[in-house]
Design a protein around this nucleic acid. Structure first.
Length: 485
RNA sequence: GGCCCCAUCGUCUAACGGUUAGGACGCAAGGUUUUCAUUCUUGAAAUCGGGGUUCGAUUCCCCGUGGGGUCACCA
């Protein structure tokens, strides 16, 4: 046995992977990565009824998109411990179960669910807690290897244990009972299977949210019965909904992780954001653009105890920061991906012009949803289509009439003939002197309107640069013509 | 209800028992700019309440209060 850190993420395949699950996976992954250890993706598919077809693939795609990669997973069994799907590990659970039976620490329970419900109802009616251990048979029958198997809790005591995040935790014997470890359908329960698997897979650190604190005494009694050491417990705070009250759940609108991909969130931004719910780097830096950066500063000591709300506003901001960080090519690919068809089929569309426009687009959006909205609202119609606008729009606020703009535009037209269009700055250099001389607004407002047809748009030099010399001259000429007289 | 966990601006959070309680998102007001966006500056905004311990509590202890979790042949 080496000292290598081994962590795992162990979702059940009951649907898409939501943000809460991803955060747990991310922490486990970062810890393994930081320590040069292994991260395992284990699928806890022990409840056939709840299983949703396709969700294993969905989970794998979600994690892959985020850049969370696994050493072993459902698609990659281990040479040492075998499959990462619990449904393929039934023999292992059975052999451990038999060991417990032999030791007299587990017994078959053939009572029906109805019988147990009746007992439970009775206890409830009498106002006392229902404990199976109070109805434990005097003598255990032999286990046929198929019927329900119950763990016999051997020692009723108060358990105290250490949690990396929470410190000393404890719970009394009321938390202990004879719980089921093997179900009538031959599958193990979570309570049993995860312990066996963590042992078999050499898991050193368990990351899970605090809903598991109250069942930890159960696990501890089982670790004792199996005479094994338990992994290090790392309890994560829950992610709360935007109201900060209740836990974020699918029912409360927790989205499929892949929806964030569709909405144009970058994996690095989502990881960055999720890492900061329930953990902080200590200093004042909160932007981490790569997983390596994140992993290198990640620490268990800085994991938070209290729940954190999911603040979508901050995620939007963080995404825009990550977008700005992207190289020009990546930004272009990003924008291209979000473009509606109506744009690429516009009369003047060209990849070159789009590439030149990318910075002004990136500057105005936080995600692809906003990009689509801006384009749908016609914000960028001028890019690939001659703008149509009311000539009155060309009138600068200090002018009495739009006619004042005509001669200025004509002068600009002259300047444009010898203008260097290699960069927005070059265009600016060519026109700035004239604008300074006549008045900035007097020249630049009508010019910008001539190019974009809009009251609000990027500055005229940028517009001209994007449109190119020919189109720029054409639009300025058109504007001149629009002004009567 | 029993048991368990948690508690700093609206939100995410920082602060060896000693700070004007800091930063970020968002919000507001200004600056830069022909407009929008970007950007810059500034501002408003918090230690849940009550008791202790201490020269001194955001910090340690107790009690409240509030919130959350858990009590399955679900994970």
């Amino acid at each position: 046995m080496s000292n290598k850190v081994v962590t795992r993420f162990a979702p059940s395949p009951t649907g898409f992977l939501h943000i809460g699950g991803v955060r747990t996976a991310l922490f486990a992954y970062l810890w393994a990565k930081k320590n040069g250890g292994q991260f395992i993706l284990r699928i806890e598919d022990t409840d056939k009824k709840r299983e949703v077809a396709g969700s294993i693939e969905q989970i794998m795609r979600s994690l892959s998109w985020l850049g969370i990669s696994w050493e072993y997973g459902p698609d990659k069994p281990s040479p040492d411990f075998g499959s990462c799907l619990q449904s393929e590990r039934l023999a292992t659970y059975k052999s451990y179960a038999e060991r417990l039976v032999e030791k007299g620490l587990a017994y078959p329970d053939t009572r029906s669910a109805e019988e147990l419900d009746a007992l439970r109802d009775k206890a409830q009616a009498e106002g006392r807690p229902f404990l199976v251990r109070e109805h434990r048979p005097k003598e255990f029958e032999t286990w046929d290897g198929q019927s329900t198997l119950r763990f016999k809790v051997s020692e009723l005591k108060r358990y105290t244990w250490h949690d990396v995040v929470r410190g000393q935790l404890s719970a009394g014997e009321e938390a202990l009972d004879d719980f089921i470890i093997m179900k009538a359908d031959g599958f193990p329960t979570y309570n049993f299977a995860h312990i066996i698997d963590d042992l078999e897979m050499g898991v050193t650190h368990i990351f899970r949210t605090d809903e598991f604190i109250s069942s930890t005494p159960k696990f501890l009694s089982l670790y004792e019965a199996l005479e094994i050491k338990h992994p290090i417990f790392t309890t994560l705070p829950p992610i709360m909904g935007p109201d900060g009250k209740k836990k974020l759940s699918k029912r409360d609108g927790a989205k499929d992780t892949l929806d964030y991909a569709k909405d144009g969130y970058l994996p690095s931004a989502l990881c960055n954001f999720l890492a900061l719910i329930g953990w902080n780097p200590g200093g004042e830096q909160e932007l981490f653009f790569t997983e390596d950066e994140l992993a290198s500063v990640f620490s268990l000591e800085k994991i938070q105890r209290s729940g954190g709300a999911f603040n979508e506003e901050k995620l939007r901001w963080m995404n825009s920061e990550h977008l700005k960080q992207l190289g020009r090519e990546a930004q272009t690919a990003y924008v291209t991906k979000g473009l509606p068809d109506s744009v690429t089929t516009a009369p003047q569309y060209s990849d070159e012009r789009l590439a030149r426009a990318v910075p002004v687009i990136i500057e105005r959006i936080h995600n692809l949803v906003e990009l689509r909205e801006l384009f749908a609202a016609g914000e960028f119609d001028w890019l690939f289509k001659e703008p149509s606008y009311d000539p009155e729009l060309l009138k600068w606020k200090n002018d009495d009439s739009v006619h004042a703009a005509k001669s200025r535009l004509q002068h600009v037209l002259g300047l444009l003939e010898t203008t260097d269009f290699s960069s927005p700055e070059a265009v600016k250099n060519a026109l700035w002197g004239y604008a300074e001389e006549i008045g900035r607004g007097e020249v630049l407002w009508p010019l910008r309107v001539a190019l974009s047809g809009k009251e609000r748009s990027p500055d005229p030099f940028m517009c001209a640069y994007i449109l190119g010399p020919e189109e720029t001259q054409k639009r300025v000429a058109t504007a001149c013509a629009k002004i009567a007289g």
